[in-house]
Amino acid sequence: MLHLSITAEPLFHIFGFTVTNSLFSAWIVMVILIITALVLSKNIKRDDKKVPGKLQNLLEFTIDQLINFMETIAGGRENAVKFFPIAATIFLYVLLSNWLGMLPGVGSIGFYHLEGTKQVFVPFFRSAFADLNMTLALALIVVTMSHIVGLVTVGIKGHISKFIKLTGPIDFFVGILEIISEFGKIISLSFRLFGNVLAGEILLAIITFLVPYIVPLPFLGLEVFVGFIQALIFAVLATMFLSQATEAAHH
């Protein structure tokens, strides 16, 4: 029977903490990224006079291009370099989670769990960002970080004056809109990613359920693309929000 669920299913409990299948998948993604980072770190020559190896060359080229790309969004190299670690991590984390979520076995290997009188299928793996907790957490981090960055760069007074404006009724209303838009950012960031990944999963599941061979392939390709685009969008928006926060209020 086709398995579809909006929420992640609990797998097991550690000291009263429920580990869901999406969190479990997120851990796997994390482990892969961390191991890759450690392996890369061993091969990186920190001396700029030495000729870098092929791998480092590729890495340097990619990072340089990404920073150049971010410069156009963040409005300056300083900001781009400052926010690069967060944006790049979001990108890699989301991208790898999305792509690993399409591997065979994700959503299909699991166990049956007795819930009341009903047998419920619980897959071991679920694409990490097909869980609102994951996307919401990331969105909250980005928006909170943007406020911290704002407070640090333009000061408490400067930052609060972006939202509470007592210079006139129109300004006051604009301030309220700004406050609402901050919540809007959280909701749009989290639901966009969640919706896209979940929709992709459901689409693939339905297509595979209906026609198991050949036909799902274009959709799989589409999902590879969507996974990349969503990761990029999240990272770009994060960069935008963070760099916007460094600007003083417009008058």
Binding site: L33, I34, A37, L38, L40, S41, I44, K45, R46, D48, P52, Q56, L59, E60, I63, D64, I67, V81, F84, P85, A88, T89, L92
Partner: peptide, 14 residues
């Protein structure tokens, strides 16, 4: 971890 082991060294070199 990514910042400590990958981004900072590479960006430093760059």
């Amino acid at each position: 971890i990514l910042k400590r082991f990958v981004y900072t060294p590479i960006i430093g070199v760059l």
